[in-house]
Simulated scan of single mutants.
Amino acid sequence: MSKQVPLSAQKRTHQGKGAAGRLRKEGRVPGIVYGYKVDPTPVSVDALELYHALHTEAGRNAMIRLDIEGSTHLTLARDLQIHPVRQETLHVDFLAVDTDSQISVEVPIHLVGEEDVAPGGGVVNQILYTAPVLVRPLDVPNSLEISVEGMEIGDVKRIEDLQDQLPEGAEFETDPDTTVVTINAPVSEAELEALEEAVGAGEETGVEVEAEAQPAEDVVAEPAEAEEA
């Protein structure tokens, strides 16, 4: 479950690009706090402390106990804007939450037992990397695990196979039949070359290719367009 991580914030009295730029040069990240029992408040936090807060086992779902000059709020980091080259956080929103009310989060899905897939050369194909979960803030799982041990070609595991890992009262915000992982038949080198040649020539291949869903990523802001609020 999510660990509460302390983080200190300072109110921002000056706003705009110039003020935000000066904060970043000082090693601070501009942001805003809003949500449960708090008026929208511009703040800044230490960049290194924010990095450590978001790199616990809970990752981006870490519950951050944000202290704003003596006033404490339980928050989640949301809508991070990341520099496209330096990968530095340019701006962060902190969503204040009520511990008794459910929130919507994306929980990472990890595969286990990949080395024990049944004999036959099946290829593990993970379709879903995170699952949307409605859950109380202090019950947010760090991750969900799904075992592919013993699965054979053609086997499928779905969201419903993760149900027993949810805390009491929590629920998935997606169809329980949603596919998480499949075991596909391997493609030979000759078949792969033939498929690539056909695609290159613009021919009908008769093969339907399913795109893999990728993990949710942070918003990447261009330096000139970063949020300065």
Score class of each variant (00 low, 15 high):
T99V: 06
E149S: 14
M63K: 12
L74N: 04
K157L: 07
P119H: 12
V135A: 09
V148K: 01
A170E: 12
A185Y: 10
D164I: 15
D79N: 10
V207F: 10
L54D: 00
G70S: 13
L50T: 00
I127H: 09
P42N: 11
R78H: 05
G31W: 00
K157M: 13
R12K: 09
P167L: 06
E191S: 14
A229V: 13
L128Y: 01
Q10C: 04
V124M: 08
E171G: 08
A201C: 04
I146F: 03
H55S: 09
E193C: 11
I159E: 00
V112I: 14
H73Q: 11
D175F: 11
R86F: 13
V97K: 01
I109D: 00
V199Y: 14
I159Y: 02
R28T: 02
T182P: 04
E210D: 07
E145L: 09
G59Y: 04
A226Y: 02
L162Y: 03
P137V: 01
Q163F: 13
L166Y: 07
I103E: 03
L128K: 02
L128V: 04
S71N: 11
Y129H: 08
Y36P: 00
L76H: 01
E203V: 06
Y129L: 06
E57T: 10
A62H: 02
P84I: 05
R28E: 02
E203M: 09
A62F: 02
F94K: 02
L138M: 09
P30I: 00
R136G: 03
Q102H: 09
P176V: 03
